[in-house]
């Protein structure tokens, strides 16, 4: 087994015993179980789950990721004093956090679905998209969290910044778009709005599922425009590739900062 896999393995050992991860898994289990019990309409359940996960996953990923790196600073120093490459340690820490977080989300959602005995298999495509978008959110927001805590020595500032960034993407961004629409309603804004869409990974993930479900009205103004502008296939390809860019860019910037950092 190579060193990267070993670092990841021990980190998964550590995180999977953490109280926070257990609460996180339980949250998905209970939410998923609750929604399925209330409704026989699986697509509706999936839309509700999507709305919840698109708030919760970015929040937990970015906050947990930031705190994790701050709390383990001395452990990072210990590992760096071993004959290990910095790049390997960086990806080890990152994947060691992303894998358990993504795993507990997928497990938490899928167990109640499978046990419910309802016709979830008919909607397997949507479920796969739900998982894909949730995993993308984990990947993206953990890498933003890593970037923040590598760049900021001050943990209060770092944590504040994490919460602020989450708030921006999850809440303020859509509000800002609505304000723009309100102010400039006399102008043709559609194309510009589509441009704005790519700057918010949460919106991108939402579009991914909604396009698949054909319920454009549920995704707000930007989503409605998006579906009108692109047909489903192109929309999905475009949103997936933008999510990939969102996953790679902060991670690589974080890596280059990590390589240069003084510990």
């Amino acid at each position: 087994m190579n060193i990267l896999a070993k670092i990841i393995r021990y980190q998964i050992h550590d995180i999977s015993r953490s109280m926070w991860l257990i609460i996180y898994t339980l949250f998905f289990l209970l939410t998923s179980y609750g929604l399925i019990s209330f409704s026989n309409n699986i697509p509706k359940v999936l839309v509700s789950l999507m709305n919840i996960t698109l708030i919760i996953i970015p929040m937990v990923s970015i906050i947990f990721g930031t705190i994790y790196l701050y709390n383990n600073k001395d452990y990072v120093v210990l590992m760096l004093s071993q004959p290990i490459k910095r790049t390997v340690l960086y990806f080890g820490l990152y994947l060691g956090l992303v894998i358990p977080l993504a795993f507990s989300f997928v497990i938490g959602i899928s167990i109640p679905l499978i046990l419910s005995g309802k016709n979830w298999l008919e909607h397997i495509a949507v479920i796969v998209y739900l998982f894909t978008s949730g995993v993308f959110q984990t990947i993206i927001f953990v890498s933003i969290a890593f970037l923040i805590s590598i760049v900021n020595e001050n943990r209060i500032l770092g944590l504040g910044l994490s919460i602020f960034i989450w708030l921006c993407f999850a809440v303020l961004y859509d509000g800002m778009l609505l304000l723009i629409i309100e102010f400039f309603q006399d102008y043709p804004l559609e194309k510009m709005l589509i441009g704005f869409l790519f700057f918010n990974p949460i919106d991108l993930a939402r579009i991914l599922i909604i396009l698949k479900l054909d319920v454009a009205a549920l995704m707000g103004y930007t989503g409605a425009v998006f579906q009108k502008f692109f047909n489903t296939e192109w929309g999905i390809i475009l949103s997936l590739s933008s999510l990939t860019i969102w996953s790679i860019v902060p991670l690589l910037i974080g890596k280059s900062k990590f390589l240069k950092k003084d510990f």
Partner: peptide, 27 residues
Amino acid sequence: NGNHEYRSKIGYMPQVASFPDNLAVQE
């Protein structure tokens, strides 16, 4: 110059020890 192999010759005891919270000593 950013190499890492040489550190196998060095044992380092930092001022403050910290390890992942939920690992056992033997781990």
